[in-house]
Nucleic acid binder design. Sequence first.
RNA 1: GGCGCCUUCGUCUAUCGGUUAGGACACCAGGUUCUCAACCUGGUAAGACGGGUUCGAUUCCCGUAGGCGCUACCA
Length: 493
Amino acid sequence: MAKKRVRSRFAPSPTGQLHIGGVRTALYAELLARQADGDFLLRIEDTDQSRFVPGATENLCRTLKRLGIVPNEGVWTDDNDQIIQRGDFGPYIQSQRKEKHQAYAKQLVDMGKAYYCFCSEERLEQMRQQQEITKQPTGYDGTCRKIDPAEAQKRVEAGEQYVIRLKLPKEGSVTVEDVIRGKVTFDWKLIDDQVILKRDGMATYHLASMADDHDMGITHVTRAEEWLPSTPKHIFIYEAMGWELPIFAHLPQLVNADRSKLSKRQGDVSAESYLEKGYLPEALINFLALLGWNPKADQEIYSHDELVELFDLSKINKAGAFFNTEKLNWFNNHYLRQKPVDEYFALVEPHLPDDEKDIDFKRRVALLFRERLNLPSEIKDLSSFMFESTLDYSKVNLTWKDHIKEEALERLKAAKAWIESMNESLVLDVKTTEETIKNKIKDNGWGNGDTLWPLRVALSAQEKSPSPFELMAAYGQKRTIKRIDDALAYLVK
RNA sequence: GGCGCCUUCGUCUAUCGGUUAGGACACCAGGUUCUCAACCUGGUAAGACGGGUUCGAUUCCCGUAGGCGCUACCA
């Protein structure tokens, strides 16, 4: 038999911003398809209209685009941010498949695999409360399961309101075959007759998702672990319809520090907000890919293409993984440093003062702090002193350790003269500046510490900062001399 | 409550019966150094617990504990 073309999908609900866990789910599905040279599609699961958030789909696509997770089929947005649908298996928006779902539900009823249920929501609610009070297992009591199909049909035709429920076996067991977890067995008698078609005519997830996966030729169903307990119902639908079962892979969850399901309450979970904060797509992808899966163990940095090449569904971990920002920071720092200078500067520039018009100076400052940044925005606090017209020396010591003020004065005056004797292009070169200054210090028989410390503090007014040579090279001659003059003036005051 | 899943350094993970249990982040120390960062070197740190199976278990099986998930006309 010819090998089936791999088709995977990411099928989020348009209920808000894209969850960071959703990004990983999407990524794994995409890696799977791209590796096999198959198809990766985006389907929107909007069967719960009460939770629908306008604009959520567009937002979702925008975020996936920024992350570089691009489906080749299904829902997407065009250059004008308008929703489009591509492919031969559409529509790819579930609410638009309502009639198909209804037809499947009826078919299931006709085959005796599902039945009409006329129970009111109020009655069901009461029943559930009663079950809870008496500590009985909650679940549908099967009232309508017993109704004669012909009679049920009449009631439906008479216009009575109904839902359709699965008519699940009451004995025996099912075994779910999962690539990540192996065989998992469930007792049928513990599984409730699930509603598959709601009163409003819309299918629930259980029917909609299975029907669409089948209709769209999905070969690999990758989804979050919380779906594992309902997989028996899904298998039941597949088998009742005579469909070929897909490969199931229930992904481990992303968790909070306390191991609960990653939630808004305990931190940021929106992918977009991470992007807004300045986390780079490549850092996010790299980090997320390694949360629950590891191709080699002795390598941390992977490009998207490498991930495609190495991805292996069966090597995914079973346990939940904590979304640890510390390591994300490290990845971001790595990718920030690796960026071409122009791209790096474009990222950092918005965080530098607008009123500074010397772009070349700004670039030099940006580069100066590059290896210190986890996020582009951090440049602001780190470099703000460099853009101030005058510095406040009152909080720092311009003299080296326990040395005297006169010494600092002497060294600064000398340094000023040295720098004045150089030309601008020489100052701008860190290596030349360092060599020149160090040689002069040596010529005078002075120490590096007692000279360089006052110099550096004169230039920064900071306890900690880049070296005086780096600062001078970033400032240029004019700004450097201005700073030394200011420090000199402060010292003689 | 019922059912299911999970359990290796603080965190992310490697190990597919025999390893000094490896790597990365974080942390600590040293080196470099005018300070800081970076960088280099080194270090602290783990198989939840109890039984089996086996010549030998982190690895296989059972149990316990803990964590998490599901238990909707939400996904």
